[in-house]
Design a protein around this nucleic acid. Sequence first.
DNA 1: GACCAGGTAGCAA
DNA 2: TTGCTACATGGT
Length: 295
Amino acid sequence: METGTIPTDDLSGGLDLYRTLESGQTYLWRRADGDMYTGTPAPEAWYYTVVDDTPLRVRIRDGVLEWESTTDAEPLVRRLLRLDDDLEAIVDAAPDDPLLREAYDAHRGMRLVEDPPFGTLVSFICSAQMRVSRIHDMVSTLAREYGDEIRFDGEQYYAFPTPDQLAAATEAELRELGLGYRAPYVVRTAEMVAEDEVHPAAARDLEYEAAREYLCQFVGVGDKVADCVLLFSLGFDEAVPLDTWIKSAIADHYPDCDRGSYAATSRAIRGRLGGEYAGYAQTYLFHHLRTGDDG
DNA sequence: GACCAGGTAGCAA
DNA sequence: TTGCTACATGGT
């Protein structure tokens, strides 16, 4: 086993592992000590994930981020948790808006994640009309049923399935696993990626709105899901997914940003939330409004 | 038993 | 283009 430590004091803006991993941006991490999204975890709880069959777990103890893996995973940890983001500068540069300030103040140390593209794509296809905890359950089920089993330090972990593995599933199987009407979307999208026609990561090379259009060619992916993939996996920090919570925030706090269509409203709210890092702002607002957690 | 949850596809006008 | 509506499932 390889291990390492990263003092969180060294990170601009700090790191709140709980809020980063349990705010509904990522469904590819699990908490070792029980169910996520219900109550606050033990202070030193481990979180684990598997990336390209490499197991990884992290926790914070005494203000130090500890990681354990089968290899030197520090670069991976830094990438997945975006530890090199200058969070303090991002917060400072945010627009002077009361609701946004409240959200940033209440959740200090929450960072965006950078998850693997395919797992993110499927996670958010599953997210349609679904509660955060159930999305997590669905993704965990897919990993358990179709992903590689990874043994690490006596524990059994599961990698999220590859496109090939998921394309081998049938719609009937996925309905049996509780995916409902999302089942054919997941199978067909997995087939598209497995057949190498299109790949979500290819959107990286495009301009933001073109990238969103590109992702919409996957089955079960509309503007909102595409924005989630762009924001939580592909580094488009300006992407603002217009979900139910953000739409209600627009209605209550930024009514002039409602321009009817998704594309036009997206441009307006993106501007209002600071442009370049509007997606960061969106993620804070989403978590703040959804949990009602004021700090 | 309604009502809701990080929406999208398919179809009509 | 824009505006419906059906779509699965589990929790409150």
